[in-house]
Each structure stands twice: as structure tokens, then as C-alpha cells.
């Protein structure tokens, strides 16, 4: 039983390694995520944010602009998740008086 588990794990790791080797290499400026325009001549998210973040919000830190402005709805949901986690902890662990 244990041998089967290890075999499954090893084959899964080998699969992931094969997939990783087919990615663009680390630091490639021309990989699809780092290019300035995609195959349809449209803008790519990363390059668009770099070029427009300061003009749109006068904030030098692009990560802050993306976090709070371009993807503000994402961060709102994430804040609600943090709050829900806190409330879940409270209700799981509170001292029961009864």
C-alpha cells in the first residue's frame, strides 16, 4: 500500500518536472507573460500595468496600484475572506457557557 503511494507521488513529480521544463526559461523577457503585446496585437496585463500605473494613480509602487485599484474587487473579496476566517475561528473556539 505504501509502495503504491510512493509510486503515485514519484510519477506525479516526474509529470510536473516534464511540464516545468517546457515552460519559458526563468528571466526570459520575451515569454508570453512578459511581452508588451500578445499574438492578437492587444495589450498584455503585466506590461500595461507597468506603463500606465503611474499615470493613472500618481503612485510609484505598481504593486500597490494593481492591488488596490486595478484589481480592487479581488482585494475586497480577499479582505472578506480574512474577516470570515477570523469569525470562523471565534465560533469554533469560543468557550461554551452551557
Amino acid at each position: 500500500m505504501k509502495a503504491i503511494h510512493i509510486l503515485v507521488l514519484a510519477s506525479f513529480a516526474a509529470l510536473l518536472m516534464v511540464a516545468a521544463v517546457h515552460l519559458p526559461r526563468r528571466g526570459d523577457p520575451n515569454s508570453p507573460a512578459n511581452r508588451a503585446e500578445n499574438v492578437l496585437k492587444g495589450p498584455v496585463a503585466g506590461a500595461y500595468y507597468i506603463q500606465n500605473a503611474y499615470l493613472d494613480a500618481k503612485t510609484p509602487n505598481m504593486v500597490t496600484v494593481i492591488l488596490a485599484d486595478y484589481r480592487g474587487f479581488d482585494t475586497l473579496g480577499e479582505t472578506v475572506v480574512v474577516f470570515a476566517g477570523g469569525v470562523a475561528c471565534l465560533y469554533l473556539l469560543r468557550r461554551r457557557t452551557s
Partner: peptide, 18 residues
Amino acid sequence: VTNPDLYLNPLPHTLMLT
């Protein structure tokens, strides 16, 4: 800011921050 090759891609950093 005209050449995006001079900065790291900020999108994965943001996603991983959350």
C-alpha cells in the same frame, strides 16, 4: 516607464501578496 522590459512583472507579486 516606456519600456516594460526594465521592470519585473508586477502581476504575480500582487496575486501572491493576497
